[in-house]
């Protein structure tokens, strides 16, 4: 670097106020495009950005997650030993009780299978095609709840595909790249699911709620049924556009009356959202989508 070059290459600078307004305008334009993603095709915009993310971030996140979970598992294991010894004693007695109950249930299961054949009920997840994935990162801050998994378009995933864990609904994919996907959970405050009370076949609206979040519940509203009971099972409804029907959401754990003759309350989800590590993505059937 000779002094001559230095003089010629006098640094070209933009005053920070102009830079601020230029970038503000850029952000606003980007927001307008991506918030209306249904109407405007943002594909050419998000494509390269997502590729960038999967080159720089996903490998790092994957590595750190592997190390992190290993360390956490080791410490957890040490802390759990004494608790497990106590629990073991209790469980042994429980096993005896359950063996007796199991034989009884086995007999009832045969009855059930016969009945199922009779009615040709086919609502379990057995014949859904699913892809397993690992959670590699969680969302920023406490306000919303979403997480990143390590499978993406390359594994055949698409936006809006449903995600399961522990046999219950976790959420759906809202953002996707070549080898990552972002899943918005049903406990996220800005999320709504149309559900059905299994026993009554009545629809309700299930929405995440940050205030219920600490007690591990999600809230429901707009249920038009009088004889709803605590513990009733709620599944995704057939009229939902974004969710595959008949997936378990959870059980009702609180009921309140609303002035307009509907009910609201809380649901305990079937999934343990605190300890999500492995999830399943339903590849087939895809959720019904109105166009």
């Amino acid at each position: 670097m000779s002094p001559v070059i230095r003089r010629n290459g006098e640094e070209f600078t933009i005053p920070s106020k102009y830079l601020l307004s230029i970038l503000t305008a850029l952000c606003v334009v980007l927001m307008l495009i991506t918030f209306n993603a249904d109407k405007i095709d943002a594909g050419p915009l998000t494509g390269p950005i997502n590729t960038f993310a999967s080159i720089f971030m996903t490998p790092l996140q994957r590595g750190i997650t592997t190390v992190g979970t290993k360390i956490k598992n080791t410490t957890d294991r040490l802390a759990e030993i004494s608790r497990l010894l106590d629990e073991n004693e209790k469980l042994k007695t429980k096993v005896d009780e359950l063996t007796i109950e199991n034989t009884r249930l086995q007999r009832e299961k045969y009855d059930y299978i016969e009945l199922k054949k009779l009615y040709e009920i086919d609502s379990s997840y057995e014949n859904y095609k699913m892809v397993g994935a690992t959670v590699i990162a969680k969302s920023q801050g406490k306000w919303y709840d979403s997480f990143t998994i390590d499978k993406g378009e390359d594994n055949g995933l698409k936006i809006d595909m449903n995600v399961l864990a522990d046999g219950g609904l976790v959420g759906r994919i809202i953002e996707i790249g070549p080898d990552f996907a972002v899943v918005q959970t049903i406990i996220s405050d800005d999320n709504n699911v149309t559900g059905t009370v299994m026993s009554l076949q009545k629809n309700l609206n299930v929405s995440g709620n940050l205030k219920e979040y600490d007690s591990g519940n999600i809230s429901f509203s707009r249920l038009k049924a009088d004889n709803v009971k605590m513990g009733d099972i709620v599944v995704t409804s057939k009229i939902s556009e974004k969710y595959v029907p008949d997936i378990l959401i959870g059980s009702i754990s609180g009921i309140e009356n609303e002035p307009d003759n509907t009910k609201r309350g809380t649901i305990t989800p079937a999934v343990d959202f605190e300890h999500l590590n492995r999830v399943l993505v339903i590849v087939d059937p895809e959720p019904y989508k109105k166009k």
């Binding site: 503000t24 850029l26 915009l45 997502n50 993310a53 969302s139």
Partner: peptide
């Protein structure tokens, strides 16, 4: 970076930019 993983571009970028400024 946060925007990329939240699916809505520009929102966090705007807030963080003003805080930085």
């Amino acid at each position: 970076l946060i925007d990329i993983f939240s699916g809505k571009l520009g929102f966090y970028a705007l807030i963080y930019m003003y805080i930085g400024f």
